[in-house]
Amino acid sequence: MTYATVPDRHPPSPGRRGWYKRNEIAVTPWLFLAPAILFFLFYVIFPIYQSFTVSFYSWDGLSDPTYVGLENYRELMDDSAFEVSLWNNFKWLVLYLLAIPVGLMIALFLNQTVTGIRLYKSLFFFPFVISQVVVGLVFTWFYDPTFGLLNTFLGWFGLPTVNVLGDPTLATYGIIAAGLWPQTAYCMILYLTGLNAVDPEQIEAGRLDGAKGARMLWYIIIPQLKPATFIAFVVTIIGALRSFDLISIMTNGGPFGQTRVLSFYMFEKALSEYGFRMGYGAAIAVVLFLIMLCFIAYFLWSMWKEEKGH
């Protein structure tokens, strides 16, 4: 004998269901985001808040801090080493941006189907995967005035020896050139990825309209590479402002402190000098953060404006 199951004529009302079941769609994404948000708050937002707070104190990191208000910032205005560091950061910002057009040109070359293209891609990709410390050591040997390849090449043409890292006027540019090597490789990878997403129909339409060469690149290909260009700009500017490891490896701020940037000068003041001026170092960090924030805010505003226009 079989018995038919009678359906429940009184399903549970929304009020009888649990709170999570009623809000499952809205709550579940936040549960997945919660660990990342907590890490971001603890390791990014809280240290930024601490930097602002410490910058108002005179503190060696061990004894009790003494509140000095804006005194650390007033001292920055008369600090010649801070002025040199700020000016060097400006040089890094301007010259580091060369990685973007050079990376684009290399990506356009590597996007072709020619014999040995995989070997070329490997050679251009290589700088991206090696450590900045290794890059610094390689270029230190390259610039060496006694056995470096640079002076060997100059000697072939009868030119005098150049001590790049020992010359206060050339050292910063020599370090920037070393930093451009891996940064160009990174921009190249971004653009290679972007070129794979270029619409072939638009390229074909451009050819039918007579566009070729530079006109094809400027009016059809580059507009489709805007997402890659945006990321390249943001990462390159942040990399220029955060430059520390190459300076530490290649010159340690010398000669005569002429290759310092804000991040390196902050380290010197907060952790390297006798007295450990944590408050003064925090003030330098705040200035660097505000400069970086201006650039990031500008790029985010530009991206939001463009998305709103669409």
Rank of each mutant, 00 (worst) to 15 (best):
P145N: 02
R74L: 10
F126T: 03
V129R: 00
I106Y: 09
G116C: 02
L123D: 11
N88Q: 11
T161R: 12
K121N: 06
Y143R: 00
F157W: 06
V114K: 15
F124I: 01
S80P: 00
L93C: 12
N88I: 13
F153N: 01
A99C: 14
Q112Y: 08
V84F: 09
D78H: 06
V114R: 15
V84C: 05
R74F: 12
A81M: 02
P145D: 02
N151P: 10
G155Y: 14
L154F: 11
Q132S: 08
V114E: 13
E75T: 12
L137Q: 11
G116F: 00
Y143W: 11
L95I: 05
S85G: 07
D79S: 10
Q112A: 06
N89I: 04
N111Q: 03
M105V: 06
L137I: 15
V114T: 15
F139Q: 00
V134C: 08
I117R: 15
D78V: 06
Y143C: 02
T115K: 13
K91E: 01
F124K: 06
M105I: 04
W87L: 13
L97K: 06
V134N: 09
L86C: 13
Q132N: 06
P145V: 05
V134M: 12
L108Q: 13
D144I: 05
F126E: 01
F153R: 03
Y143F: 09
M105T: 04
L154D: 10
V138Y: 07
T113N: 10
M77G: 00
Y96S: 05
L154K: 12
S122N: 14
V134K: 12
I106E: 14
Y73Q: 08
E75P: 07
S80K: 02
L93G: 10
F126K: 04
Y120C: 12
L137Y: 14
N88G: 11
W156T: 12
S131H: 04
F157I: 11
S122I: 15
L104E: 05
S85R: 01
F125G: 02
L159F: 14
F128Q: 15
F126V: 06
F128H: 15
T113V: 14
V114W: 14
L154H: 08
F124H: 03
T152F: 02
F125P: 00
R118E: 10
G136A: 10
G155F: 11
L86R: 13
N151C: 08
L137M: 13
D144Y: 11
T146Y: 09
L154I: 07
N151V: 09
L93M: 15
D79I: 03
